[in-house]
Simulated assay, not measured.
Amino acid sequence: MDLPSIYQAILGWPCYAKFMVVPNYAYLKLKLPGPRGVIAVSGDLQQAHSYEEESLNIAMATSQALELQSIWATMIETAPKSSRRKQSAGAFKPTNDTNVVRIDLEDDIFAWKPSDMLGILRQVAEHSLDILPGAKPVKQCLYRFDDKRRKAIGEEITRLLATGFIKEVFHSEWIANPVQVQKKNGASRMCIDYTNLNKACPKVPYPLP
């Protein structure tokens, strides 16, 4: 199988016959004759189960990645030639061969709330912070908020914890405070003060909010 796996080797019946191996699946043991007597190889059920689960995750991630590549290749092949021309930002204008696609809002293809976004496997995509070498971690002092803002921040944190977007971390090297930012419509939005962390990372077009 042309598929990544965590196993270093997979032994089949031809190997068993060649080395005269006697397997015992109930006790997870292999016995075979050696130069100085019988050689016994023992396994661990819990470790084997964890390996099997990890191999399944890798296989699923690889399958999803291949499926996405196939969909992307199909989209490129079926796309109109005019849409393949490189255009500058803000130049997206409908052309004569533009197709209008109608979407039913009742279809289960949109994420209307955070719990609808189930995420992807880490084997497919994983984000990491490219912190500059020699940067010292900064632990911000605790911000004080009034009762109204503290209640709003608490509700937002509870919602993010329930959906699995965040998790509690102990002994963190970097500590940043939540802040309340007012929108144009008067509502407030919770953000994180990543000022110190942004200074410790290289300049990129998309800084942390």
Rank of each mutant, 00 (worst) to 15 (best):
P23V: 04
P23H: 03
Y25G: 05
Y25W: 10
Y25V: 09
A26K: 15
A26Y: 09
A26F: 05
Y27A: 12
L28G: 03
K29P: 00
K31I: 14
P33V: 13
P33L: 06
P33F: 10
P33E: 05
G34E: 10
P35I: 08
P35N: 04
P35K: 10
G37C: 05
G37A: 12
G37K: 14
V38F: 01
I39E: 04
I39A: 01
A40P: 00
A40G: 00
V41D: 00
S42D: 00
S42V: 02
D44V: 03
D44F: 01
L45I: 11
L45H: 04
Q46F: 02
Q47N: 03
Q47E: 06
A48Q: 05
A48K: 04
H49Q: 15
Y51D: 11
Y51G: 02
Y51M: 15
Y51N: 13
E52Y: 08
E52G: 15
E52M: 08
E53D: 11
E53N: 13
E54Y: 05
E54I: 09
S55R: 04
L56H: 12
L56Q: 10
L56F: 12
N57F: 02
N57C: 10
A61S: 12
Q64W: 01
Q64P: 00
E67Y: 00
E67Q: 13
E67H: 02
Q69M: 14
Q69V: 07
Q69P: 05
S70V: 04
I71G: 01
A73I: 01
T74K: 13
T74E: 11
T74Q: 13
M75P: 00
M75F: 09
M75K: 09
I76P: 00
A79C: 06
A79T: 04
A79Y: 02
A79I: 01
P80G: 04
P80V: 03
K81V: 12
S82I: 02
S82Q: 10
S83R: 02
R84T: 04
R85C: 00
S88M: 03
S88L: 12
A89K: 14
G90T: 13
A91G: 03
A91D: 11
F92H: 06
F92D: 05
F92S: 07
K93H: 07
P94C: 10
P94N: 12
P94R: 14
T95N: 06
T95V: 13
N96I: 11
N96R: 15
T98K: 13
T98G: 09
V101P: 02
V101D: 08
R102V: 14
I103R: 12
I103D: 04
D104I: 01
L105S: 07
L105K: 09
E106T: 11
D107Q: 08
D107V: 01
D107K: 13
I109C: 10
F110R: 11
F110C: 08
F110K: 08
A111H: 15
A111I: 01
K113Y: 09
P114T: 12
P114Y: 12
S115G: 03
S115I: 09
D116W: 07
D116Q: 06
M117Y: 12
L118A: 12
L118V: 12
I120M: 10
I120D: 10
I120C: 08
L121R: 13
L121K: 14
Q123R: 13
Q123Y: 13
V124G: 01
V124Y: 06
A125F: 06
A125T: 14
E126M: 10
E126W: 11
E126Y: 06
